[in-house]
Each structure stands twice: as structure tokens, then as C-alpha cells.
Design a protein around this nucleic acid. Sequence first.
DNA 1: AATAAATGGCACC
DNA 2: TGGTGCCCCTTTAT
Length: 555
Amino acid sequence: MGLTRNKRKTDPEIVIARDTDSELSSSEEEDEEANYPSSESDEEDEAVKNGGKIELEKKNAKGKTPITVKLQKVCKVCKQPGHEAGFKGATYIDCPMKPCYLCKMPGHTTMSCPHRIVTGHGIVPSSHRNTKNSIDFVFKRQLQPRIPPIKPQYVIPDQVHCAVIRYHSRRVTCLEFHPTRNNILLSGDKKGQIGVWDFAKVYEKSVYGNIHSVQVNNMRFSPTNDDMVYSASSDGTVGYTDLETGISSSLLNLNPDGWQGATSWKMLYGMDINSEKGVVLVADNFGFLHMIDHRSNNRTGEPILIHKQKVVGLDCNPVQPELLLSCGNDHFARIWDMRKLQPGGSLNDLAHKRVVNSAYFSPSSGTKILTTSQDNRIRIWDSIFGNLDLPSREIVHSHDFNRHLTPFKAEWDPKDTSESLIVVGRYISENYNGAALHPIDFIDSSNGQLVAEVMDPNITTITPVNKLHPRDDVLASGSSRSLFIWRPQEKAEIDEEKKDKKIIICSSDSKKKGKKQKRGSDDDDDDDMFSSKGKNIKMNKSQAKTTKSTRKTKT
DNA sequence: AATAAATGGCACC
DNA sequence: TGGTGCCCCTTTAT
């Protein structure tokens, strides 16, 4: 109740006194309309801008006409009076004139949505005709034996084990665990920097700022050298970086002539490595797939048009190297045979209602497909051998924000041999003891059940980037500029002595720190972007602080 | 404390 | 089909 966000303390009242036309006649009403049409509309514009609706009370008096303008509260979403959308305390009230913010159907709000999280998470099973398709005959024999019969118990990393607040200077865009060193986490950000964090030694923070000039969209470790990392960026290049030295080279540059305007600037989004074929696959914002020979690190073949618009995700099948999955802004996820890559030559097109943020084969058998779309649905195809016209299940889930945030992507748990547990950040908040928090959801994708909703009162920002560890019971999260490592409660073992040191805050503002520290910090100096030196910081323990409970809303 | 900016998708013409 | 305006539970810095 005490929260005053988007709320006026008092209803403003403006009284405008003005000289009336001395020739005012007896036909008052008409004259008023005729005399002040322009000024009235000006006032209205201003009032509407201020969030109010105008009401004119014109009192007739001889000589002077005072006009009282009352500003009535209107809904900030639909601009209609009578209701107000926005936070009441830590609870958000939807605009009732809009379709449900969660499932997008009209007639109810998120509060009363049948798919609302508290009722067990929405699930809409589709009819699943298990007829065969063309993939079947080619690949089934290789893939089928990998599907395990028994579902293991879930282990949910649900407690913040350690964190770096404000690790990056812009929001986190992607995360990647080191393939062999269990405590190394790679993080990319909106500014093009790549962080290497050993979360066993919380205080050591390295950020390389010389690799890309704008956002990193995907990172992959080299299959043959653990120290080397490929990165795809909106600057149109693929970086190849030695994490030990920070020395980086550009393997592909789609903008060799520099900036020629926004319509021609190429950006790289989706990336994956097909190690069997020895090729790095990247895709751009115009729908083209590019390939780099992994051994020679040279470009190979011609770009191939695989989508009509931006390709945001590429995923190679973990078992069958001939299969490639792509997804993008043209509302499709597509399955390709690597041997027959040509425009329009996909094996299957999986239709979605909105942009597809991600599409992944299941991690061990490679026979299931998981997609995240901006229509607030997570879709699962249980078998690529079945009929793929419709998904096996659609799970209604809030993740449709498409601006200011890194796109949400539901990710498989690579350790779940039954290939059902997935993790995905949630957009809309819930009121948890007076705080508006955005949990990270664990969902059993085989039945749509919400297995766990993970949150911490210290994390008040949305957490769209999440990655489960390939071997350990660890979840890594990127929320705004911060990184979090979660472990299961019993394993998080809060050591009281070390408790203070597990969550640290990076001093981030170069302007406040002055030149001396600016050199090595994650500063905002874009001129450094293409310089050869890497930026490597060792955090000073004295800089570290424990987090304090941040924005807790009053009730 | 109030405000602006960054910024992506999509409907509409 | 390309340009323009609008969408609207963000986050951050000033």
C-alpha cells in the first residue's frame, strides 16, 4: 500500500484563470467551443502526458471565466479511467483491458489466469500423432538406444552459494561452463566483454574487453583446446581467444568495410561447433549461416540462407552430427541435414507464433527438442522421429519481454539422463513476503509441472540467463550485470566465517574511481575496444562487501 | 525523487 | 515491402 510507484500523492488540480472575450454573448456554450479549441487541446495533451485525464469545469462569471482542470487518474497502460495498472506494494495489478499478461488470452488477468504458476504451471498438451517422418528412417537406429527408461531424482540448486554483484558493466548476455575445469564460468555481456570467473576463488575476476566492440551473443569452447574460446558478436566477428593470455583474433568479419549504415551492418548471433565435422557454425541477423573450418580457422563454403530473418540459435545434435537445429525471428525452428544445407532444404520447420529465442536438442539422446518463444510458451517435441507438425506439449510460462533484457532461453539440465528437467528465468514477478521477486523456474518438461521456483531476496532484478553445470549440482545465473552461483541447500553449506565473503560487490563506476583504477576496470571507455591489451583485474578484498537486502517493498 | 536512455519486435500503412 | 510509431511487471545513472 505504501508504494507510490506511478502513483500521485494527491490529485493535482490546476486552476486557470483567463480573460474572456469581452464580446461574450448569450450563446455561451457554442462560443466557448469556438473560442478555445486550440488551447483546450494543448492543455489536454499536457495533462495526458502527466498521466491525467482532463475535466473542464467552466464557471461563468461576468468578465472572467475560471476554468478548473481536474486531473483524473487513468491507467498507464490503456489510458482509461476507472482502474490503474501497476505495482500495489509488491503485487502487480494488470490492466484488465489487455489480454492476460501470462497466457495472452483475453477475459482475465495474470492473477486469475488458469496457467498461473501457483496452480502448477500452465500446460497445454497437444495432440501427438506419432506417425513417422523422414528423419526416422535415416537416424532412428543411431539415436533410439540412448533414451534411458528411468527418471532420476531431481537435484535443484536453490541457494546462492556465491555471487559477484555488478560483475559486468553492462547486462549479461550469455554464460558457458568450462568443459573440464569445474569452477570456471565464462560470461559475455552487452558491451562485448568476456568474463572468466573462478567461483571457487570468489574474489578473482577477469574481464577481457578487447575481443568485441558490442554484445557477445554466444560462446563455445574449442573442442580440442580448453583454453581457447569462440565468441559470436553483434560486431559481426567471431572471436577466438586464449583465456590464459587474453590474446584474441578475429576468425570472421562480416563488416570488413566498417559502418555503412544500419541496414547493411551484419551481426552474428547463433553459434555452435560440430566437432565431428570440424566446423564452427555461426548465423547472422539476415538469416545466413556461415562456417569456419575448426582446424585451419578459415572460412569454409559460402553463406547459406536458412531463415528469412535473424538466426538467434544454432544447436548441433549431440549424437548425430548430421543434424543441425536453428531458430530465429521468422517464428521458425528448423531441422537441417548438414549434408543438404541449402535454402528451403530443411528437414522440418517447427512453427511458432512469435520469435523463437532458443531451440535445443536434448543433451544426451538428442531426440527431443525444447524451444522458447516470445509467445510465452515453452514447447517440447518428445521425439524427432514422430510427427513434428505440432509440439508434444506447450507450457505457458512468462518470458516474453523483448526489450532491455537478454532474451530468455529455457535450458536442459545436461545431467538429467531422462531429459526432462529444464531451467528458465521468469519475467513477471510474484509477491514474496512483500518483495517483488522474479524466480528462476525448474520445470519437468515431460509433464509441465513446476518443480521448483528459485529466488533470493537479494536478487530483485530479472534473471533471464541461466545455465546448469554439465557435471555438478550447480546453476549459474546472469541477472542484469551480476553473476550468481547456486547450489542445493545441503551443499551450499553456509560457513558462518566465510559467509560475508561469498557475495561480493564490484565497485563498478569508473567515473567515481578516477583514472588510476579506470585502466584495469570494466569501465565505459569504448576507445579501448580494439586495443591489443586485455583487461585483467584481480579484485582487492577490501573492495568486497556483503550484500545488503536491496529494494524491499513496503506493504 | 523524478526522469531519460537504451532498445527489439511487430502492426500498420 | 520499408519505414514509423507504439508496446510497456526493465535497469541504471543522473
